[in-house]
């Protein structure tokens, strides 16, 4: 468990964004900005992911997709909303097909503003997410240990 805490895996899903934030998320994982030096690894598999990066708002079509991805991730997990659209709905808030920000579908922990969000702020968001993930893992471990000692005492 200790190693997972040091190196959480990141899953990226594009809600209904304009693509600008998606390529910035990808750019922040490539060598020039290199978010991977903070221990995160980009993955395409929700079953192995710890941090979910959502770009773009939520529409009626991808609501269930985002919920399903979130449910497939093992606990503990952290959600980061990248970009103004993922935070509030942004410029598309008034469109007929947009329900709002990413928090309409799943609980969001960290909001990264910007249109499009700059790689520096995305990295800042990822670093905060890693810290939060480590905190939650510790709490999770403590809860598991408490439950174990409880069963042993019985």
């Amino acid at each position: 468990m200790a190693k997972v805490k040091e190196s959480p895996w990141v899953l990226h899903y594009d809600g209904s964004s304009c693509n600008g934030c998606d390529i910035e998320v990808l750019a922040s994982l490539t060598p020039v900005y290199d978010a991977e030096r903070f221990g995160v690894v980009n993955t395409g598999d929700p079953l192995q992911a710890d941090i979910l990066l959502i770009t773009g708002g939520i529409n009626t079509q991808n609501l269930s997709v985002v919920k399903q991805l979130y449910d497939q991730m093992p606990r503990p997990k952290v959600v980061v909303a990248v970009g103004t659209c993922a935070c509030t709905g942004g410029i598309f808030k008034e469109c007929y097909n947009i329900l709002g920000g990413a928090d309409k579908a799943v609980p969001v922990d960290i909001y990264v503003p910007g249109c499009a969000a700059r790689p520096q702020s995305i990295i800042d968001g990822i670093v905060q997410a890693v810290e939060l993930f480590q905190k939650r893992s510790d709490e999770h471990d403590a809860a598991v240990a408490a439950a174990k000692s409880g069963t042993q005492a019985k």
């Binding site: 209904s16 991808n62 008034e94």
Partner: peptide, 14 residues
């Protein structure tokens, strides 16, 4: 398709 559909053509009314 339709996962990214926002309907921005309707924003001309606003």
């Amino acid at each position: 398709i339709g996962f990214v559909h926002r309907g921005l053509e309707s924003l001309i009314a606003k």
